[in-house]
Amino acid sequence: MNQLPWLDTKISVSRHGTGRRSVLDVEKEKETHNYLSKEEIQEKIHKYNLAVTDKLKMTLNPNGTYTGFIKVQMELCKPPQASPSTGRPAPGNSGCMNTLHISSTTTVGEVIEALLKKFLVTESPAKFALYKRCYREDQVYACKLSDREHPLYLRLAAGPRTDTLSFVLREHEIGEWEAFSLPELQNFLRILDKEEDEQLYNLKRRYTAYRQKLEAALSEVLKPG
């Protein structure tokens, strides 16, 4: 079973060495704080760490954010396209589990990008989606997460047991063309234009040859005897 090295995708931006963070980071922290108070987070992290059995504990930061680990199972119908120069195979449909070290401000979209970047996958992140899989009363429920949700908060709220909550990366269930970026679609159009020109050229050449043969036959028929 392949695992990624610990990958910290926490976003932290400083300017001119002052330690100030971007507005986006501050807003993301505020959004996280809306779920639980700092005291509630501290209590939940304490209980979470007591229940951990694989040493993948969470850490509370002085500013109220926290870091920890999530495991993501790869459930892909076909291996995504990876850069041919890397020599590293892209994740397939073997159901391999990958462990990521992330922050409470890390979004679903950033988790997807981190996984694809780690495997050097060249396909657009829009082609993939992260699902949460819940288990209740012998029933399994899978729910696609929005790009702005925070997986580590979901992990903290559910506890460390993966038989209660787990994360799965799958191909995005969207329209046939919506998964492609604008440059990819423009490239498709160029290919179609080229194929159309080739087909027209071959068609004109074939009918030109047919016309020449027909005119030659008519000339023989109309030739004075």
Score class of each variant (00 low, 15 high):
202 N>E: 14
192 L>T: 02
159 G>M: 13
181 S>D: 12
167 F>V: 10
201 Y>K: 13
190 R>Y: 12
205 R>Y: 05
168 V>G: 04
203 L>K: 11
157 A>F: 15
157 A>Y: 02
151 P>N: 09
152 L>C: 04
157 A>L: 15
158 A>D: 08
173 E>P: 12
192 L>M: 03
167 F>E: 10
173 E>N: 08
164 T>R: 11
156 L>I: 04
192 L>V: 04
186 Q>F: 08
148 R>K: 11
155 R>C: 12
200 L>G: 01
171 E>P: 05
187 N>E: 15
194 K>I: 00
170 R>S: 12
165 L>Y: 01
204 K>M: 06
182 L>S: 07
183 P>I: 12
189 L>R: 10
199 Q>E: 03
168 V>D: 01
192 L>H: 02
200 L>Y: 00
205 R>W: 03
200 L>C: 02
185 L>I: 10
153 Y>T: 10
169 L>N: 05
157 A>D: 07
194 K>Q: 10
152 L>T: 03
176 E>K: 12
197 D>T: 09
180 F>H: 06
146 S>Y: 02
159 G>I: 06
153 Y>A: 01
156 L>V: 11
203 L>P: 00
190 R>M: 15
193 D>I: 01
166 S>Y: 04
181 S>Y: 02
202 N>T: 03
179 A>P: 01
158 A>R: 12
192 L>S: 05
192 L>I: 04
164 T>Q: 10
206 R>F: 08
198 E>L: 13
199 Q>D: 00
198 E>Q: 09
171 E>K: 07
183 P>Q: 06
163 D>F: 11
176 E>G: 00
172 H>L: 05
151 P>G: 10
196 E>G: 00
171 E>F: 10
175 G>V: 08
163 D>I: 14
158 A>C: 15
203 L>D: 13
193 D>F: 01
175 G>T: 15
205 R>H: 09
168 V>R: 05
172 H>S: 13
189 L>E: 12
149 E>M: 11
206 R>S: 07
190 R>W: 10
167 F>H: 11
193 D>K: 02
182 L>H: 06
146 S>P: 00
201 Y>E: 14
153 Y>G: 01
161 R>G: 08
157 A>N: 06
199 Q>C: 12
203 L>I: 01
160 P>T: 06
157 A>K: 09
172 H>F: 06
151 P>S: 10
151 P>I: 07
202 N>K: 11
145 L>A: 07
146 S>I: 02
177 W>A: 03
191 I>E: 15
189 L>S: 14
181 S>P: 02
154 L>I: 10
